[in-house]
Design a protein around this nucleic acid. Structure first.
Lengths: 206, 206, 206, 206
DNA sequence: CATGAATGAGGCTTCATTCAT
DNA sequence: GATGAATGAAGCCTCATTCAT
């Protein structure tokens, strides 16, 4: 029930500031290239070259290619959830929380296209971490939704079902407009999406 | 306007019934293993072994490992669209069409878990075919939605936006319950999902 | 001393006119592709495709890929020697024979670029046939040269040495101007080459 | 005017003495085997086995089988031209330069049969490098010849034509006696060849 | 902490050839 | 005579990882 991810803190083998710097360079390089070409089309050599270090150096900080990938997913999970939390903290109505949440999420995707693509690819690289990502994300989401249902602001629907519906919507809209077009989600799309989420597709009295 | 995928017919190099049989065996083997282990963790040897033919035989029918993959995606695109079309043909109200569409879709996914996973992985294997798949699928969807909007049955929302929202929902629900749990989508989830799709999440007067 | 090539007649397995036709198509296709891409970059499939027959048909007429190659070299040897013989027959002076011989040779190369390239490649494909080609060619050449030496028209030089010198010259000139430029050898080059062959490079009294 | 081959320096990926040693071993192994069996009948495995390293090591130093080949040709071009330059430096008359040049060249071929065969095979492996080899070699040759023409020592013939004639002669003589017989060019052959080169084949007053 | 040489398993693909029809 | 399916050995190359320095 609780986030099973206690163990899932990014491991950091750097022991000196210089080491930390190198680790960061590797992490960034990995993020870029994984995002561009995908996990399987990225080689460790490439990562080290982009980071400007020797091949062996990679294994000083990460035990394997899968390991960096995992750490990137974990980092993203923490970052994105923190950003959304901060953005909606203090906002009372769920309705506004949702709107702000979407904006925050899409902004994040826009600014971290690569990281986002990495998460989506996790399904084919490390299914365990992929599910962990979605489950923790969904759990956080569900809490807010359950709360709002109790408050009578939202319909009484299965929270998990609703959470996955909403995640699906943001993923596909983000993919279609941000990843494919490379720009931010157009305002009218955002509006229509929001209207749909709030009121559904049926025309009242239709 | 029309589906741009006219050129995307699966290539068939078999010239005799015997050849066609072999081709089918390879196609089936590939579907199974790609679905189980993913494109990148599947080797051509494995496919040929499962199909019971020699390695070289693979290249008699497919020009590369990517090629089979592509053909599987194309096949799926044709099949799934045809099945949904058939299922909703004759059904008048869009509302019922949607419900039947979901059932058909989820049934399909349940019965072709592997094929469905292949499509989703296409994003990392052959982005071109992946986009083609979604665009053609979305186009078909949009036609039905636009029609229903004209009839006054649905709200006037951007059809593409709506199509991607709906695809996102089915993908994530299908993933969460069918792929992860291995069973069909529970009835209550289906109900809540449908209610959400039709009426949105906000409680009227909430 | 005598041509060792008695055994080297092109083998012909065709037994009917239709078969002979097929054999010819294969031979022509092989000549074209070997010439264009070299023996090792040419596949039997390619030959059969260009010839418009099935893969298996190839082995009805030739026992192996090497075999066609060999037959082409043998054919060329016969053809080119015959053409030169005919061209110089009746011509008395060795001097004119040489000039006519060059023209004939270069014309042949120009019209059979591919065949010529095949002979040169033989060195790396089937050294035996390559040496046979040069030895028989040299022998024929030497006869004419020896004769002319006896007549007092040519210097008394080792005939084999002279033959190889002259072959070297025509090969390199042919390569440089016909194969590389794709045109016939320019007249001034032909003149200077002839002058060199007849009188050497030293300026008399230089 | 200047040799166009400035860019054609052998690439060296070794970064330490140890690496350089390995690279050399590979280069030598490749030279031997390419020379013996030809490019297309040589496998990378064979090269690494002869060099006493693992297969993968090959690709640490060379990007492909073609690449080593290319480097060997480039090396040969540099070496042979340097040797001839050194041998004839200080020799005044073109006549003597030619004689010394032949000796040097034939000696080189005798001592580097393999390397020489590699160059000749280049025509079928990498035509670009093959032409580069001949063009740079011819250019150097032409300079000397042009000079001697100006000095009135040689006839006024097209220098390029003359260069290719002379190259053709040395190639065929070298092939016939050194490569085929495996020994050095017999003295009488060398004499007759030289006489022919200097004075041509026509008997004066013949 | 960092380097880069070395490894070797394993993957994809080609292709000459055979054979049943 | 002709077809085309099938084979399987063999080749080239990649790459995650280890290790000595």
């Amino acid at each position: 029930m609780s986030t099973s991810g206690n163990k899932l803190e990014p491991v950091n083998k750097a022991k000196t500031p210089k080491g930390e710097l190198t680790r960061q360079k590797l992490l960034e390089a990995a993020e870029e290239i994984f995002g561009d070409k995908g996990f399987y089309n990225t080689s460790v050599v490439e990562i080290t070259q982009r980071a400007g270090v020797a091949q062996g150096t990679f294994y000083v900080y990460f035990s394997s290619k899968h390991e960096v990938f995992r750490q990137l997913v974990i980092m993203l999970n923490h970052t994105i959830r923190r950003e959304i939390q901060q953005a909606i903290s203090g906002v009372k109505s769920r309705r506004e929380q949702e709107i702000i949440g979407y904006q925050t999420f899409f902004n994040f995707v826009l600014n971290h296209k690569n990281l986002y693509k990495i998460v989506l690819e996790a399904q084919w690289v490390d299914d365990e971490i992929y599910r962990w990502y979605f489950k923790t994300f969904a759990e956080g989401y569900m809490q807010g939704l359950t709360e709002a249902m109790k408050q009578g602001e939202l319909r009484n629907l299965d929270p998990e079902c609703l959470a996955y519906c909403l995640m699906g919507i943001t993923i596909e809209i983000g993919k279609r407009w941000i990843l494919w077009e490379g720009k931010e989600v157009p305002q009218n799309i955002l509006n229509d999406m929001t209207e749909f989420v709030f009121h559904g597709m049926l025309k009242p009295g239709g």
